[in-house]
């Protein structure tokens, strides 16, 4: 029980749309996130993945069912701040989550809110900036940084709160390929080296390949769950959901259909290249 950080049981979320109709954004979602895991949640727009993530730190409350963070129910408003301290959240738009006009002051924002003593804030800010490799930029103005750098600052800002789990809600959707690479490698390094639990929401399948486990959402439900290899080797099934399998998986699938003898679990470019070289 102790190694479970987030658990939802039959979690439902309903909200009224403009016409007063109730929309079911989440429909009996049950997921379990264990400590140290790197879980990717994928799905099309409107599949409910962001709504699910916002329950993980009590930004949204369940309409029915339960969401437990480290054993605490998010629906209990008394535990709200304890929960937000355990689960840090990074959002899509890097500009709209940076509060201060100096990088290090922005990173300090979280610990300042928690009433951490100034010396300890200093240490946390330095650690967090080092963890995302942005120490050299600590006195810069955020609006002059690139998208990837801003997003790393946002991650540092969350790390300074010392959370148990990092939830990233499409952190690369607004970034260029270079920025995406920066953010993804930062996050996976945090997961590998510091054992940080990561929940990574994305619609880039290439990024989900790096996860330990992938959850596929559609219409407010979790419809598939498995390792990246299990999920992405079913190219047709992924395509039927309106998602695009990673390019390597798709190429391998087409080649297999043309009669080439390739293993069924190719999902990265390297694996594809290796398999092609060996098949010759």
């Amino acid at each position: 029980m102790d190694d479970i950080i987030i658990q939802t049981k039959d979690l439902c979320h309903l909200y009224p749309n403009g016409d007063g109709e109730l929309i079911r954004a989440l429909d009996k979602v049950s997921v379990t996130i264990r400590r140290g895991e790197f879980v990717a949640i994928i799905g099309t727009n409107g599949s409910g993945k962001s709504t699910l993530a916002k329950h993980f730190n009590a930004l949204l409350l369940p309409s029915a069912g339960q969401c437990l963070v480290d054993g605490l129910p998010v629906s209990d408003t008394g535990d709200m701040w304890a929960i937000r301290q355990k689960v840090g959240m990074v959002f899509q738009n890097p500009d709209n989550q940076i509060v201060a006009a100096v990088v290090e002051e922005d990173v300090a924002f979280g610990p300042e809110n928690l009433g951490v003593p100034p010396l300890e804030i200093r240490r946390r800010v330095d650690d967090a900036l080092a963890a995302v490799d942005m120490t050299d930029y600590r006195l810069h103005a955020p609006h002059l940084l690139s998208g990837g750098q801003k997003q790393r600052i946002a991650i540092a800002g969350v790390l300074a709160i010392r959370p148990d789990c990092l939830v990233l809600d499409e952190p690369t959707a607004m970034l260029d390929p270079l920025g995406r690479e920066e953010v993804l490698s930062t996050v996976s390094r945090l997961n590998k080296e510091q054992g940080m639990t990561v929940v990574y929401i994305t619609h880039f399948m290439e990024e989900a390949v790096f996860a330990d486990r992938v959850l596929v959402m559609d219409k407010g439900r979790i419809i598939r769950e498995g390792t990246p290899k299990e999920i992405f080797s079913c190219v047709e099934e992924i395509a039927a959901l309106g998602l695009e399998a990673p390019l390597a998986a798709e190429v391998a699938w087409h080649l297999r259909n043309r009669g080439l003898d390739l293993p069924a679990d190719i999902i990265t470019d390297e694996e594809l290249a290796l398999a092609l070289c060996q098949s010759n």
């Binding site: 730190n57 701040w81 937000r84 509060v99 809110n113 100034p118 804030i121 800002g157």
Partner: peptide, 14 residues
């Protein structure tokens, strides 16, 4: 809010 902001009460400064 996600970064635990809840007004100026008990806030410290870097």
């Amino acid at each position: 809010e996600a970064r635990c902001y809840r007004g100026g009460e008990n806030r410290t400064r870097l």
